[in-house]
């Protein structure tokens, strides 16, 4: 079989913030009743992470859970393990009204880090990016210029952005343009 490659093969840009394509990431979208004990157990055994509360992400070493909507989770796993984890989740959800699907190849991920990272995202998304409002562990689905995107902030002040693979080139250009050096707005 051919080797899988990510959308932009690790493209990177450096300006007032560093923008890098994140490479291959395993992602499973899961819809179901998030309050169900069976579903909580299934995702916990797959990722080690507990069920996140609304608008948050729970991250562990090789995985995590993102709260997408009241009935949807994004399960983050290692790319190589995605099929095995999907089978594990499906086994755990037997008899439950839920749907889990591997969406890894439909997505692209980016990392934005550095001092200007908040400024970069604030230029593109209608989200309050101030230090008090957007804290580590927060997860937000929103609009990035003309396309849908979601991102979370980890504990090292790095933003992780998820978008559709088909718009990866557009999003990388957007982020790089917004991150040009000396283009700080100076709000954050």
């Amino acid at each position: 079989m051919s080797d899988p490659v990510s959308a932009l093969n690790g493209a990177a840009f450096s300006g007032m913030a560093s923008v890098a394509e994140g490479g291959l990431a395993g992602m499973i979208t899961l819809r179901g009743d998030l309050s169900s004990a069976k579903l909580k157990d299934a995702v916990k055994s797959a990722t080690g992470a507990a069920m996140p509360v609304s608008g948050k992400v729970e991250l562990r070493e090789d995985g995590g859970l993102c709260w997408m909507s009241p009935d949807e989770l994004l399960v983050l796993v290692r790319y190589e393990e995605v099929e095995a984890k999907l089978a594990e989740i499906n086994a755990g959800l037997k008899g439950e009204h839920a749907l889990a699907e591997n969406v890894s190849d439909a997505r692209a991920v980016f990392r934005v880090s550095g001092e200007g990272a908040r400024e970069v995202l604030a230029k593109l998304c209608p989200v309050d990016m101030s230090v008090d409002a957007f804290v580590p562990g927060q997860f937000r689905r929103t609009r990035m210029a003309q396309v849908a995107a979601a991102f979370w902030l980890d504990h090292d002040e790095t933003f992780h952005i998820v978008c559709f693979r088909s718009v990866a080139g557009y999003v990388f250009t957007l982020l790089s343009t917004a991150a040009q050096s000396q283009s700080e707005v100076g709000v954050y």
């Binding site: 609304s54 608008g55 909507s69 009241p70 209608p126 309050d128 937000r140 929103t142 609009r143």
Partner: peptide, 12 residues
């Protein structure tokens, strides 16, 4: 009312 986000018009 579902996710608690204060969404600006362009997100809706």
């Amino acid at each position: 009312p579902y996710c608690g986000v204060k969404a600006e018009e362009t997100e809706l």
